[in-house]
Simulated scan of single mutants.
Amino acid sequence: MRKRYRLHLQGREHLDRWLVSYADYMTLIFALFVVLYSVALVNKDKYRAVIDGMSQAFSVIQSRSDGLLDGQGHSLLDNAVSSSPSLLEGATAAAPSLAPISGVPVLQNGTTLAKLDMQLQESMSSLVDSGIVKLTQDENWLTIELSSGLLFGSGSAFMGPNAAPVINTLSSILKPVDNYVRVRGYTDNQQINNEIYRSNWALSAARAEAVLNGLIANGIAPQRLAFEAYGEFSPFADNSSEQGRLQNRKVVVAISKFAWVPTAPAVKPEIAEPAPALQQAMDAGEVKVISLPGGGIRITTRQD
């Protein structure tokens, strides 16, 4: 009987070991939830102090009613951060303006665009009335739109006989002033691929460069000039019609309201000549120049 009871206990002693693993599992689950709960608790006072400190450091006024932690704000910052003033907004900006594209600091405005517009209207009245030349003025630019047919042949960047009078007229008005000038080339969307120009972009660049070289040849400072190529990618009209393509083939001379300010020439430092007495002593060998061990030199008249 006792032997049979022992055999019965030996069969049950391994059945309760799952309780050990289950207890370990529950302990781990409990620890996990404790950690998650502690992480979920946020000390709003400390976070508010951090946010206020950052706001003061970046000079951002932040209202306490709509906070990030309260979940009621519509944005991280209550007041929208205004963008920096445009480089072309005028001389009232705090920082010195930058010349368009060139990035050269400009400390003053050039000749007023209204005055230049009046001079161009008088000099090119016949071309403006016929629609071959178009003048447009805004706050920052005075643009002169020149039809490519007036300056160049079809698919060419070599100036025709009508180009010289136009370039000379422009130069006579632009030369006495210091305003920056940008020459921009445009084409239609009819593809070109010949021995000289592989794309409309190359053709527009060559035409703009030709006009720029004409202005330089008439005495306009190259530091004021630059050319831009837009090809077919900035059309003025719809390229589906011949009239639209005609309007897109042009060279635009854009005059900036800012002036080019020549940089002052660098002043070479003057090298002081040695005193006559010292020069005579050096010539006579009475002055010795001794190199010091730690670097440098020492001048002495001692002969020992």
Rank of each mutant, 00 (worst) to 15 (best):
H74N: 11
S75G: 04
L76F: 08
L76S: 09
L76K: 02
D78G: 11
D78M: 00
N79W: 02
N79R: 09
A80I: 08
V81K: 12
V81N: 01
S82Q: 13
S82T: 13
S83A: 13
P85S: 15
P85E: 07
P85H: 14
S86D: 09
S86G: 15
S86I: 03
L87N: 14
L88V: 11
L88Q: 15
G90W: 13
G90C: 12
G90H: 10
G90K: 09
G90E: 06
G90M: 10
A91R: 09
A91N: 05
T92E: 12
A93L: 03
A93E: 03
A93N: 09
A94E: 12
A94M: 04
P96N: 11
P96W: 11
S97Y: 15
S97D: 07
S97V: 10
S97L: 12
S97W: 14
L98I: 06
A99G: 12
A99Y: 07
A99H: 10
A99Q: 06
P100T: 10
S102N: 10
S102G: 11
G103H: 02
G103Y: 00
V104W: 05
V104H: 07
V104C: 05
P105E: 08
P105G: 08
P105H: 09
L107P: 00
L107M: 11
L107I: 14
L107K: 11
Q108K: 15
Q108T: 15
N109Q: 05
G110Y: 00
G110R: 04
T111P: 00
T111L: 00
T111K: 01
T112L: 08
T112Y: 06
L113S: 11
L113G: 12
A114E: 04
A114Y: 06
A114M: 05
K115V: 14
K115W: 01
K115H: 14
M118S: 15
M118A: 10
M118C: 06
M118N: 14
Q119E: 07
L120A: 10
L120V: 08
Q121I: 03
E122M: 04
S123F: 13
S123R: 15
S123L: 13
M124C: 06
M124H: 02
M124R: 01
S125H: 13
S125K: 11
S126A: 03
S126R: 04
L127Y: 14
L127A: 05
V128Y: 01
V128P: 06
V128L: 02
D129K: 05
D129R: 07
S130R: 11
S130V: 01
S130M: 02
G131Y: 00
I132M: 00
I132V: 15
V133G: 07
V133D: 04
V133N: 04
V133R: 06
V133Q: 06
K134G: 07
K134S: 10
L135D: 09
T136C: 02
T136F: 12
T136R: 11
Q137L: 03
Q137M: 08
D138E: 02
D138V: 00
W141E: 06
L142K: 14
L142H: 13
T143P: 01
T143H: 14
I144T: 15
I144A: 14
E145P: 00
S147W: 13
S148T: 00
S148Q: 04
S148R: 14
G149F: 06
L150Y: 14
L150A: 15
F152H: 13
F152N: 12
F152I: 13
S154C: 01
S154T: 11
G155S: 15
G155E: 10
